[in-house]
Amino acid sequence: MDLDALAGCLSSSACLVTQTTSGLIIGMLLFLVAVGLTLIFGVLKVVNFSHGAFYMFGAYFAMAAYQLTGSFALAMLAGAAGTAILGLIFERVFMSRVYGADVLMQLLVCYAFVLIFDDVVRIIWGPEFKSMGMPSAFQVMPLFIAGGVVPPYYLLLIGVALVAAIVLGAGLSRTRIGKVIRAAAHNPGMVSALGINTGLIYGGVFALGGMLAGLAGALAAPVRSLTPGMGFSVLIESFIVTVIGGMGSILGALIGALLLGLIRSFGSLGFPLFTEGLMYLFMVIVLVSKPTGLFGKEAA
């Protein structure tokens, strides 16, 4: 424990601003991964334990495309589109068969694919870790905003995450498709009785969730090393985010991610050896006081 360092930082404005911004950056990155998880749970009532694998594929697709074309935009597109297609196939061929089944059965199917996907990546790209490299456009000096340091690349990340949050939030509540999706989440039987293809909706939502994870992986590829199994720790963190925020709530995922980001950035000052433990402690406290998470609704 190093509470002096924490107190010292809290009393210095420069430190406060920097650590808060880094907390926000961590949080927005987390949100981008977690939002797909929460979306899939909200609509399909499935805890997608293979979400980390989509994140991993997004990163590898992006790296492959970047090496091939040298274009950052195409790399991002490859990461997002590739995982969207993968998500659609995964949902239609496999997950759709276990919707009625036990939670454990769904978990098992996801777990099987985590194992398979990790090995597939190992076969295609090899066991060693890789790095995509930062595009030269972003190899510039960081910006100083209100005494805090922010690299331009992270501004892009925050921008993408915010756009994702707004589009998803507004899209679900205001558009016709959003209304149908919410109706399907609430009462799939009724929606399909109205002549709407629920299979298509489910597949679409899963593809969207997979795409968000893939996009997150693609965006992370320039700053994080790529290895088989890289989705694992990311899955755990985004899992904590969605549980704290409330499974199925997009706002909850945003708030949960930002809270975790702040816990990480200030926890690393005050409790450098127990930062991870703090996250789990926080999760326990939230779950015990409000089992459905901060913004979760009671299950119908």
Partner: peptide, 20 residues
Amino acid sequence: ESWPKLFQPDYTEVVTKILQ
């Protein structure tokens, strides 16, 4: 002193702490 976890994917808070 900073002690990130083994296999931690994101080091942002550690980097800014050191810069501070």
